[in-house]
Write a protein that binds this DNA or RNA. Structure first.
Lengths: 222, 222
DNA sequence: CTCTGTGAACCACTTCACAGCA
DNA sequence: TGCTGTGAAGTGGTTCACAGAG
């Protein structure tokens, strides 16, 4: 291991594209560490992620000089630093809004727990669902207890899995309790104040981009 | 309505960013049409989607001159054309690989049916699940029937919702049956041949980008 | 006068290429 | 020699600004 890891607070604003790749690098490093690999070059990481080696070096260099010239990066060392950079060195507390099919699926999604996210509860307005639990044990609470749960469990992130008609109303409630980061699965555009980070995953848009591809490429089934 | 809609096959390759925005525009137009709005300007669409008006005009102009100077775009007319461009004028046949929590959630996701996607079946290797149905009636079949189902139902799109350890093996099987478009929810990098379009949605990466935001902005809960 | 369609300017991200350290 | 870190070049996407149609 290098003597002095020199982590650095990045001077400029880091692009979302870069931070998304940091997650990919971390995924690779975890796999490599599990296989007992000690060091990896930028080219090694790049190939694994289908990226350019210079891009990998640039991404990492924003945060410090983690590499050793002539050698590469120490897997354990870099892994630890990426976790810190991504805020994964502590458990992020997550609440899921909406206890429908998607809410339950997300509550039990193994990837979340593996990366250090702690799903505290699902919230719903349907009294019949309140008190039930997902397979992995996440409990459904009533939406009216939102504020209390956010305060009690120090919720960091809200995951919006409600029908799109209810989305704006629910997100407004969540923001009012002080949550500043929201992952949204509802369709359509949501309005949030500037201090709140909203990340939307639109499943229909993703499918439609595949549909476009098929339509353009002269779909033989078409 | 304009006399002659002049749809156009785009000369250059269209960026994925553009096609994703076409889906957003379509979503807006559907809402507007439902409200009885007849025409909309590029600025109107742009505001609705938090975009720039020139960008909207550029995106649309790739595919033809749909607008009328001094007026804007006719909602019904543009909606119809966007659907054609995105391949939504016919029902895309979808099969879901993996009948876990996520598979069931996707099978019942109302957005898919609304946009013209037809979820034919879920496939799984777990004999105990075979024959069961989702709430909306999508049936679970055995993975060994994959080839037969793809042929019988003219499957266009495969949705991969299996644990990430099984993902590469399953996607290889699906591609072997001739499916050319796949929406992937498994973590990690998958290899596909060049004629296949793979779109990956990585939920962990999305959450981690929020985690990064909180870590950088001096999380008060941190 | 309004609003589209589009060349030109601008900006951001990626890749190249190489100096410099182990 | 091998590989990082980084300025410079290249690429692609967005915004500006305006000519021109209705």
């Amino acid at each position: 291991m290098p003597d002095t890891p020199r982590p650095r607070q990045p001077a400029e604003q880091i692009s979302e594209l870069t931070t998304a790749r940091l997650s990919l690098y971390l995924r690779c490093l975890e796999a490599m560490d599990a296989e007992g690999i000690r060091t990896v070059s930028s080219l090694g990481l790049a190939d694994h992620c289908n990226l350019n080696a210079a891009l990998v070096r640039k991404d990492l260099a924003y945060f410090g000089e983690f590499g050793v010239r002539g050698v590469g990066y120490f897997v354990k060392h870099l892994k630890r630093h990426l976790k810190m950079i991504l805020g994964l060195d502590r458990h992020q507390q997550v609440v899921i809004l909406g206890a429908g099919n998607l809410g339950f699926a997300l509550a039990d999604y193994p990837g979340f727990r593996a990366e250090g996210f702690n799903v505290v509860a699902m919230l719903d307005t349907d009294e019949a669902k309140v008190g039930t639990r997902s397979k992995s044990g996440v409990v459904v609470c009533h939406m009216r207890d939102l504020e209390q749960i956010v305060a009690r469990d120090h919720i960091d992130i809200g995951v919006l899995a409600v029908p799109h008609g209810a989305a704006q109303a629910v997100i407004d409630q969540v923001i009012a309790t002080g949550v500043r980061a929201i992952l949204n699965f509802a369709r359509g555009t949501l309005r949030v104040p500037p201090h709140v980070k909203l990340k939307s995953v639109d499943l229909s848009v993703s499918l439609e981009s595949l549909s476009y591809f098929l339509a353009q490429s002269g779909d033989p089934n078409g």
